[in-house]
């Protein structure tokens, strides 16, 4: 009975969340799959139920920060942007994005607002405050498809990101693509290799016991292949994020996600 139930549950989830989005990655054939599909039923429940998802604490913290006035201008995020439920809806699906001629990640744009409009200091990567604000903004796009497109403005950056993705790196001499494209769906040790789509960030990773950004996750992989990690907030990171978002275009955001 339990097995039957499980089969039913799995069957349903494939029906509802399954790879119906058109293939978008460079290799063309593989349908997009969120790594949500590879998780246990318990972990899926943890992500789906706001009363179980620990990342919702960060969303709450983010809302408190959103309404707090800071800096020389004594402005809060809300002073300009109002209610995030309205103003930030769909925003996270467009990032990384060219803003005033510079490629910005969502975190980068939040810091840009803090330094520019609010006249205060920028927040450190992986700091609780930056993660909270990112989670709040990303949460407003939950369920909406990633809508990053190739444009004349971002073309060059996207190309550099693509290069990073296909370039072998580190002492293990591996590229992102060798695992997350050629071997996606197979296993590394006991763990399934996901296609590597950035559609749930920031994620509450059980291994980390906390919320973390896409860049933290990317640095994980880079250290895994014994490569020199890109710096937090570096242009290389933004380019890679851009390529990954473009590669996952059409896949619904799950932010804030839970991953094992």
């Amino acid at each position: 009975m339990r097995n039957l139930l499980l089969t039913l549950v799995c069957g349903c989830s494939i029906l509802f969340f399954g790879p119906q989005v058109e293939a978008a990655s460079d290799n063309g054939k593989q349908a997009l799959q969120s790594s949500y599909q590879l998780m246990s039923a318990e972990n899926k429940a943890m992500q789906d139920d706001p009363s179980l998802n620990p990342a919702m604490f960060w969303v709450g913290d983010g809302q408190a920060l959103w309404d707090t006035q800071v800096g020389k201008s004594n402005k809060s995020c809300a002073s300009c942007h109002g209610d995030p439920k309205k103003s930030m809806r769909g925003v996270a699906t467009q990032f990384p994005k060219i803003m005033n001629g510079k490629l910005q990640t969502l975190e980068g744009q939040i810091n840009q607002c803090r330094v520019g409009a609010q006249g205060t200091s920028s927040l450190a990567y992986e700091s609780k405050d930056l993660l909270s604000l990112t989670a709040l903004v990303a949460y407003q796009s939950k369920g909406m498809p990633i809508s990053v497109k190739e444009t004349p403005q971002n073309k060059a950056e996207l190309q550099k990101g693509r290069q990073s993705f296909y370039e072998r790196m580190g002492q293990l001499n591996l590229s992102c693509a060798q695992c997350h494209e050629e071997r996606a769906g197979l296993k590394l040790g006991g763990a399934p290799i996901p296609q590597g789509h950035p559609n749930a960030y920031p994620i509450y990773r059980l291994e980390w016991q906390t919320l973390g950004s896409l860049q933290r996750r990317l640095r994980n992989c880079m250290s895994g292949v014994r490569a020199q990690q890109y710096e937090y907030g570096s242009p290389e990171m933004a380019q890679l994020e851009l390529f990954l978002a473009w590669r996952a275009r059409g896949l619904p955001l799950e932010s804030p996600g839970v991953r094992p």
């Binding site: 009363s51 179980l52 620990p54 604490f57 016991q209 906390t210």
Partner: peptide
């Protein structure tokens, strides 16, 4: 009843 608390533990 489900009770969750934000704590680093």
């Amino acid at each position: 009843i489900r009770a969750i608390a934000q704590h680093d533990m």
